[in-house]
């Protein structure tokens, strides 16, 4: 029983990471039709930004509020980089989707290489605030607290995004743009501003995932973002490509399947099961999980 609890909570923690990365991807894809390969680089930048700030910025640190400041710095850098990327590299290629994807591919290679050039290819130990270090007893299982931190953050983000989409004008523009971008412009709305916004939001979430992933794994390395990105892509596709709630459901599914299969079968089987899950979903419901809810 305690194993099941631990695996479930850990799986949900992983799902939280996937959701943070995948929600931005799915907003960007839904609105702009761009599969953003640079998203993994945003994650890496957020992780290294947090790590750097904890060591170098006065007031920021590895514990307490200092760590919160460090995460805020990492997220700010990730957001900024994402917004600048959209404005300078994606926007000029407006509606030229293949080229936009190619640019993000080039960026993903270049940005990760740059991080590697500056801080080396080896993993760096990541600060773990005391809150995340302990364990909590839950139904007989000792669950590390960092899992709860991940899950709580993802839930807050999910609620915030849904509220943003539901109750703000930008959210309205994004929802409409996901459905029919052309008609939004034909109503006199400059949809490109929403593009920059979703890139910035996606960058912020990815950077946040980078910082949380650092806590969860205890270390960071330049390639971390890219390996998480592949599973995030799978989550996005299973979730229906452009639906936030679909992405959340798919993230939970993928996280749990991966954890349980990795534990009960063999290490690596979980990752393979996720790919199998993707194949099954695409073959039975080519539009992803949310296709029929439309």
């Amino acid at each position: 029983m305690s194993t099941v609890v631990l695996l479930t909570v850990t799986g949900l923690g992983l799902a939280a990471l996937y959701f943070l990365v995948a929600s931005g991807l799915s907003l960007i894809f839904g609105l702009m039709g761009v599969l953003n390969f640079a998203h993994g680089a945003f994650l890496t930048i957020g992780a290294y930004g947090t790590w750097w700030a904890a060591e170098n910025i006065p007031g920021a640190g590895a514990t307490g509020w200092g760590f919160v400041y460090a995460v805020a710095f990492g997220v700010a850098v990730g957001t900024l980089v994402a917004a600048v990327v959209e404005l300078t590299l994606i926007r000029p290629l407006y509606e030229r989707h293949i080229e936009q994807v190619l640019v993000t591919v080039g960026l993903s290679l270049a940005l990760v290489a740059l991080v590697r050039a500056v801080w080396g290819a080896d993993p760096r130990p990541f600060p773990r605030p005391e809150l995340a270090r302990g364990t909590t007893s839950l139904l007989g299982a000792n669950v590390p607290n960092d899992r709860f931190l991940l899950i709580a953050t993802a839930i807050v983000v999910l609620v915030a995004v849904l509220a943003f989409l539901r109750f703000t004008r930008f959210g309205l523009v994004i929802r409409a743009g996901v459905e029919n971008r052309t008609m939004v412009t034909a109503l006199g709305i400059d949809v490109r501003r929403a593009f920059t916004l979703v890139f910035a939001i996606g960058g912020a979430f990815a950077a946040l995932a980078g910082a949380l992933g650092g806590i969860y794994l205890g270390s960071i390395s330049p390639g971390q973002g890219t390996s998480l990105l592949i599973f995030a892509f799978i989550v996005v596709v299973i979730g229906g490509m452009s639906s936030i709630t679909g992405t959340a459901v798919a993230a939970v599914l993928v996280g749990l399947v991966q954890q349980f299969a990795n534990y009960y079968a063999a290490s690596g089987v979980g990752d393979l099961s996720v790919v199998l899950l993707l194949a099954v979903v695409l073959l039975t419901r080519p539009g992803g999980l949310t296709a029929r809810l439309a």
């Binding site: 894809f29 839904g30 039709g33 509606e95 989707h97 849904l162 989409l165 929802r175 996901v178 459905e179 029919n180 596709v237 229906g240 490509m241 452009s242 639906s243 936030i244 709630t245 080519p286 539009g287 992803g288 949310t290 296709a291 809810l293 439309a294």
Partner: peptide, 15 residues
């Protein structure tokens, strides 16, 4: 830009 095979171009549920 068309995205997923079936249902592309159709109104999607968005969020």
């Amino acid at each position: 830009g068309r995205g997923v095979g079936v249902g592309a171009g159709q109104p999607r549920d968005g969020v």
